[in-house]
Amino acid sequence: MGFWTRYGSGVRKAAPLAVAVGGFGVSFGVLAHDAGMGSVAPVVMSLTTFAGSAQFAVVSVLTAGGGVAAACVAALLLNARYAPIGLSVAGALHRNRLRRLLEAQLVVDESWALSNQGGGRFDRGILLGAGTLLYASWVGGTTIGVLTGNLIGNPNNLGLDAAFPALFFALLVGQIRSRRTVVAALAGAAIALVVTPFTKAGVPLIVACLACVVGWGSRDERGWTPSDTAEDIP
């Protein structure tokens, strides 16, 4: 299938996500505006950073009076996961360096998950199609949020903080393809929970990458040795 067919497929796959992400964008715009960040800065941040959790962290740290350094550290730890994520999609992106740099900016958790083909492969068309639509809805939502803030009130009263994990959970279910993916996901969750009390937010996401090794070392349906199969025979 050609690139544009895959691109269109990425746009269609991302359509329901884009509605949710647009809603999150509105919430970010409202919270950032209420926090005194003005109308322009939150939109510029969505245009350049395009990573929800880090942007919410900046608003929350600045609102709490934590200062620039604390806000940046919080956001960058949350975005550190994009280094290993970027490595995983490297083989799928355009070979030209400037194109790679630009295409990599459309990688967010959602577009990355949708483009995962299994076997360590990612589909460039789906990644860019989904990424473009999600980028437009995130920036558009932020713009609506900073302009209409006072009409909506505090988005956290609407259960926004519970909407994030629900979205990630729905994406996770789509990633469960084999016994190994189940083992890896459970190990990742366990590691993240164990590390959370001792580190800043974002660090547990990096440490959880160790679960890839755990899952990789676990037995899979395809990887079962003959002796394992023999035990199943009465």
Binding site: Q175, T181, V182, L186, A189
Partner: peptide, 8 residues
């Protein structure tokens, strides 16, 4: 799957 479950 690891990153998404850690995010959840």
């Amino acid at each position: 799957p690891v990153m998404l479950s850690a995010l959840v």
